[in-house]
């Protein structure tokens, strides 16, 4: 049979508030009583294993659901978009600088659509008038640095646009 007073001591031991003298009393009793020892072993093992119970998780969209419930708008991943846009821009630059494809396209367009040629002539005329205003040095420098400047401006544009939009994101409660 189990002893009630010892059972209380076992419970207090599991609570973590057993005095050294009571602990000694408990150990002394356990050394003599098999029923209480068996109870002590079982209840300790059970409560210890409770700590290792599995953790359950809510469904996959739980965070989004809570954030939507709060009116928190999810931020657009500007850093990733910026990298993607910059990468795309570099690829486009390389393609148009080193490939004959743009020239072929242009040739095909001018032969197939004469109206484009007339339009381009007008654009060229405006462009030439504009370029005559600029000094040759500046003109040269600009044409040489054109892709680099374009690239730098593109990256800066995407970066600052992303930053500005991030600051604008307001969380609505």
């Amino acid at each position: 049979m189990r002893h009630k007073d010892i059972e209380r001591l076992i419970q207090r031991k599991l609570d973590g508030d057993l005095s050294p003298s009571d602990s000694a009393r408990l150990n002394k009793h356990l050394a003599q009583c098999s029923d209480c020892t068996s109870f002590y072993r079982e209840i300790t093992q059970t409560t210890n294993l409770v700590r290792q119970l599995h953790e359950f998780h809510p469904s996959a969209g739980f965070n989004a659901r809570v954030l939507a419930g709060l009116g928190v708008r999810r931020r657009f991943a500007w850093s990733k978009t910026g990298i993607a846009l910059a990468g795309g821009w570099i690829a486009a630059l390389v393609f148009f600088c080193y490939s004959s494809f743009p020239t072929q396209i242009l040739g095909w367009l001018t032969t197939s659509f004469p109206s484009i040629v007339r339009f381009m002539d007008k654009v060229e005329l405006v462009g030439e008038s504009f370029s005559q205003v600029l000094t040759p040095v500046l003109k040269n420098a600009w044409s040489n640095a054109n892709p680099v400047i374009g690239l730098v401006f593109s990256i800066l544009f995407v970066y600052f646009l992303g930053k500005a939009l991030q600051k604008e994101e307001k969380c609505k409660a």
């Binding site: 965070n63 954030l67 928190v72 708008r73 994101e169 969380c171």
Partner: peptide, 12 residues
């Protein structure tokens, strides 16, 4: 301030 990243961290 309903910062999305902080809310998500607390949720996780």
């Amino acid at each position: 301030e309903h910062d999305e990243s902080a809310c998500t961290k607390i949720l996780n």
